[in-house]
Amino acid sequence: MPDISPNAVIALIVEHQIVETDVPLTPESDLFASGLDSLAMMQLMLHLERQFGVRISPGEMTRNHFASATVLARWLSHPNRSAT
């Protein structure tokens, strides 16, 4: 299982301009309040898969999993998450 840190998730979001905010993102920032919408989530999913070699299935694309960088990183790194 990949070990993904919240800061690596933030770096990815910033690098690919997935959300643009005046206030810098922190691991706890609410991503949806920062402008993450369904188009941006699609972008983010693509980049997470590319960068970290994870696979996110359509059924896993929920607001709960994408709530913040910390939540997202913890979920993606979880050993019980199916690797396909």
Partner: peptide, 17 residues
Amino acid sequence: DDGWRLQIGAMIVRAIR
């Protein structure tokens, strides 16, 4: 709803890949 839109979005990303 929003949840549906996200799942369709994910299907589209997967298909593009």
